[in-house]
Design a protein around this nucleic acid. Sequence first.
DNA 1: AACAAGGAGTTTT
DNA 2: AAAACTCCTTGTT
Length: 334
Amino acid sequence: MSNPVGRVPETTSYGSRIGMTEDSLSILEQSRGCEDPWEMGETKPNVEALERGMPGVYLSCFDMLLTEDATWLVKVSEASSALALPMNRVEPREEPEQCPVIDSQEQGISPGLEGQEEERSLEQVQSMVVGEVLKDIETACKLLNITPDPIEWNTGNVQKWLLWTEHLYRLPHAGKAFQELTGKDLCAMSEEEFRQRSPQCGDTLHAHLDIWKSAAWMKERFSIGETKTTGSEELWSEADSSCSGQPIHLWQFLRELLLKPHNYGRCIRWLNKEKGIFKIEDSAHVARLWGQRKNRPAMNYDKLSRSIRQYYKKGIIRKPDVSQRLVYQFVHPV
DNA sequence: AACAAGGAGTTTT
DNA sequence: AAAACTCCTTGTT
């Protein structure tokens, strides 16, 4: 009944959207319904567990981090649970929260709101896991002198990556089976094709390539999406209304969510950021978040949307020219 | 059933 | 007093 994540959208509409490959679409069906094994009491991810390759842990979490399209990972979670894969080998871990993405609404926590707390620690876990993965990839790229995006690899890069991955996870050598393949070729290959070339570890390699692919995808999406020239710091400070004394307004809150697609991309996202058009993907979830923020347990989308409608005549939010369900538009986009 | 648009009274800050 | 909250009616997708 009670699921630890607090939100497992049953919607099947994910995926028929933006840049999904056919492959990832085909995997989509299996993507939902993986349990979330984190214990929410903890604020830190259990790195040891990750390193020992606790089945399913790492990737089902990773899956939640991605906004919508990157469903390759789910497939991966099966593959990787089969053979315990260690993560984070590359360097000692001593960095608790360097990730700017984490969360910024720590100001107005009224005690007694476990749900809120829960939601936040989940975000932190998510952000940290993603941060770790991205960092590991970055490190590997530096060492190997290759780009993070597999699609750009030439045959030499592919061989380097193979060697690296084999070494990292103590796999038998399979480089030969993948000779003369470019990164592009590699990315186009199914898990089955991987297995054909390397029966022993094709699935593992395919799984790891998927991680790289999703990392590259996220990187690209988040960097063009919101970081124009800014690094990433004042992005939050400006957008974060938790530090500005007065009670937060609904439109501000919505903006906050929209600025953190890695945390909330599943329940609210931009359709057109320039025009300020956004879509609420999971109305119940957004309403719950709003209720938590305002300490209104009885909040629902019916009431939330009524408040949004009050913005119509105030000229803060309106319906877009072509009215669509659950789609609104900021009158003054930033 | 879920969303949309508003009216109208109440509550919170 | 402003801004939401709440409840409700009517109409649409």
